[in-house]
Nucleic acid binder design. Structure first.
Lengths: 335, 335
DNA sequence: GTGAAAGCGCTAACAG
DNA sequence: CTGTTAGCGCTTTCAC
């Protein structure tokens, strides 16, 4: 990598002349400017990032902390984050908390030393379960902004990008009621998460608001993903009159669908199934799973936009909460 | 963020005394060292990353370029990369090429300015299709090491971590032959990729090596993912005697399985299906898909280990190619 | 045992 | 119009 100094020597001008020429300063004569620019191109000069970071006290880099990259929702949010950051001239440093508090806190701590200008993150399951938030406060006290998406906490006042989880669950449930379903099971693999609680509430509110339909909703909480198959199977055994399934996590919808099919239910004639997910491999089920579709990439894009707006704003802005819409994607497992 | 200078002022010692104390230099008196360390802890001193990067001309950061984060294979490799980097004290800057040459080249270019010490990447589909490699050479000429995983090219001499694709396809095919299958279709959605070609060759070689079994293999190439469903359906229509499917990409196995089931095939009695993938949502098919399982996280881990070994080695090392094993995971779509 | 000073690569205020 | 210089935060050589 050639430096300004080396370029200056080759051109027999001073370092600052080169710097100014390259930065479009009006102080320098046209002839010099073009001479410098040519040389810069010739020698493939690129300003050294480390020097710029030090000089400017900013890195044009955002720290991104993802709870679980193997979850398609988060993968797609990351997709949106990366796309929008690149567009706006920022890099992202990616950390994965793997749902652990310690890893999350450590990542924040490690990057809060001038490595990044701000954080975009979704809270780890363990952190939510144990209700920890001091590590967030430490970072914010250091004047490094945090933006939380999807899984957020009221304990922290910061920018947030969330899904309309309550409403999404509400309208999925309402759809099943309107289909004439009477015995719906709500399968909940994510009761520890803020979004899980919201979705659950949305389902029950829909039932309540339509109680004249006489529809009944049972919640099946399965904390352990590995138990899902067994628990769902058991539930079907003990509840022969079930005619609707709403799964509010990423995966139990598929399992419920497969279980029901194996047991001889005719889906969607005898039984409707609605899952929660972005468009992903789930629609490759047969019949194709109807889902509440999260616009995950939009979550990522909005997060980046808000964060960069804050980073580049002169004044200190009020924190904002942005809600991203969902859509109900009826495929083949609903009427 | 408190700086060395500020700490020094508070302690009434010089900057270099503070620096040396904190870095465990033997030059400084014990009393001073502990006084300094206490103060550092008290004020939560953290060395400024940008300054260190500039001083050391290295960043302890690796640039990672992923073709498609929505592909579970790559998500899991990223998982492995992040885990191992964190363990070894490195950060990763993640870029997504989205299978595009321009984005890939741009990411390399942008980060090759002191932002990262090296690159770990898998080649974009477009880059492989058009056989481009000058952008890699540029980076390597700048003395920034590149490590390629999974999708690699012979045109570039660099560290590589690959799957044993030929062997994996070979043994999957051999399994079908041993089951007594006579008419196998090889569904190939990734013929443009180096790994697609390797897997295809592996299948044909297995057939050839076992030709006394009289097994026949037809290759169905479907370049467009969106056409898979239609093409597979058509193929089954025109080939009634098919009794084995080997899908060498991430997804066509599921589609083939669903198509076959819908057409009334009894899987695995009439027809065996083997897919390629890491353990992911594919096994949630019903019956559960048998797959060639890639140990994707091991790919990520090995990549990081090799890269860091190179970055931290004093001498210049020979380039190495490491092969990661696969395993044949027979579930319910094979006998 | 401690401190002064140079320098990593860059920008910008100031001088000429 | 161009050059000199200070300084971002840190490490390290060299003086004292």
């Amino acid at each position: 990598m050639i430096t300004l100094k080396e370029l200056a020597e080759k051109l027999n001008v001073s370092i600052s002349t080169v710097s100014k020429s390259l930065n479009g300063s009006s102080e320098i004569g046209e002839a010099t400017v073009s001479r410098v620019k040519e040389a810069a191109k010739l020698y493939n000069y690129k300003p050294n990032r480390a020097a710029l970071n030090l000089k400017n006290s900013k890195t044009k880099t955002i720290g991104v902390i993802i709870p679980n990259i193997l979850n398609h929702f988060f993968a797609k949010v990351l997709f949106g984050i990366e796309k929008e950051s690149a567009k706006l001239g920022y890099n992202i440093i990616t950390c994965l908390s793997n749902e652990l508090y310690a890893k999350e806190a450590n990542s924040l701590e490690l990057l809060a030393n001038g490595s990044v200008d701000g954080f975009i993150m979704s809270i780890a399951e363990e952190t939510q379960k144990e209700n920890k938030s001091d590590h967030f406060k430490d970072i914010i006290n250091q004047k490094i902004p945090i933006l939380m998406f999807d899984r957020v906490t009221d304990d922290i006042d910061c920018d947030k990008v969330i899904m309309n989880d309550f409403q999404a669950a509400y309208s999925a449930t309402t759809h099943l009621i309107k289909e004439g379903r009477k015995n719906i099971v709500l399968i909940n693999n994510i009761d520890d998460l803020s979004v899980g609680k919201l979705r659950s509430k949305g389902c029950f509110k829909a039932i309540e608001d339509a109680k004249h339909y006489g529809c009944n909703l049972t919640e099946l909480k399965v904390p352990e993903t590995s138990e899902l198959e067994k628990e769902i199977d058991l539930f079907f055994k003990n509840n022969k009159t079930i005619d609707g399934v709403i799964s509010i996590d990423n995966i139990s919808g598929v399992i419920a669908l497969n279980t029901a099919t194996k047991k001889g239910y005719n889906v969607p004639k005898d039984l409707s199934v609605i899952g929660f997910s972005d468009d992903n491999v789930l629609p490759f089920t047969s019949p194709k799973l109807s889902t509440v579709t999260q616009h995950s990439d939009a979550v990522g894009e909005a997060s980046v936009q808000l964060m960069i707006k804050r980073l580049e704003s002169k004044e200190s802005l009020e924190t904002v909460v942005k809600t991203i819409d969902f859509s109900l994607n009826l495929r083949e497992t609903t009427l």
